[in-house]
Amino acid sequence: MTALSAPVFRHGEAPAPPGPLVSLRGVEKRFANGTLALAGVDLDIAPGEFLSLLGPSGCGKSTLLRLITGLAEPSAGRIAWAPGHEERRRAIGFVFQDPTLMPWATALDNVRLPLRLAGVPRAEGEARAAAALARVGLAGFERAFPRELSGGMRMRVSIARALVTQPSLLLMDEPFAALDELTRHRLNDDLLALWAESGITVVFVTHSVFESVYLSTRILVMTPRPGRVVAELRHDGVPAPREAEYRTSAAYAALCREASHALAAATGMAP
């Protein structure tokens, strides 16, 4: 049994380009204290894409993710889901910057949590949670408690938990920002592999140009005060999973330069 079995759209055989999975129109978020965190955000999330939101801290990336999850409501504009995905709460996986695990529960119980909340019977839940743990390379660590795991392993548990419900959309809020570089690179590669084989749609928040270029098929550059999307970069050309040398290739360097310029121009543009 595979933990993920969403249809794969990306490989080009689909007859017509499917409509967006989620589309945001004129979305604005003003907090009760008056802070305008987002203004006029138009955004379509295409099925199967790996979309990065790139921007300095404070530009509203986390706020945007929370709006997509439905944990917060926009103060203006609307967020629409593709038909068949209206049950969006069940169709979303979320990964925070911290692993956000329950310290009193084993890795298996942590991963099983979403299924448990949905009323999935224990035996089935445990089987699916174990499969999800195996997919992120943590087979054999089912009985470990979070504090017995390294930072990278905890993040893997967190990813397994996000994937266990077989969501169509995976939202990740700077998930690897607190990890060392080697661990981060390995998790980047494993995440790409998961994405490529499952066809899941990923929205990935980062403030790292390199990470966004390495991972994404599309990058949206954001600026603060108020948070808005100011530039878009696409590169569907690079095959996933990446070759080992990709990080040192000229093509990667060129894309990074392009993204850096876009970010610099965007942040210079901000008032």
Partner: peptide
Amino acid sequence: NLADLFRLYGATRWQALWL
């Protein structure tokens, strides 16, 4: 964040209390 996660997965008040 855990509390948000519980909300995201539609946890009932009882589940959030107990778990």
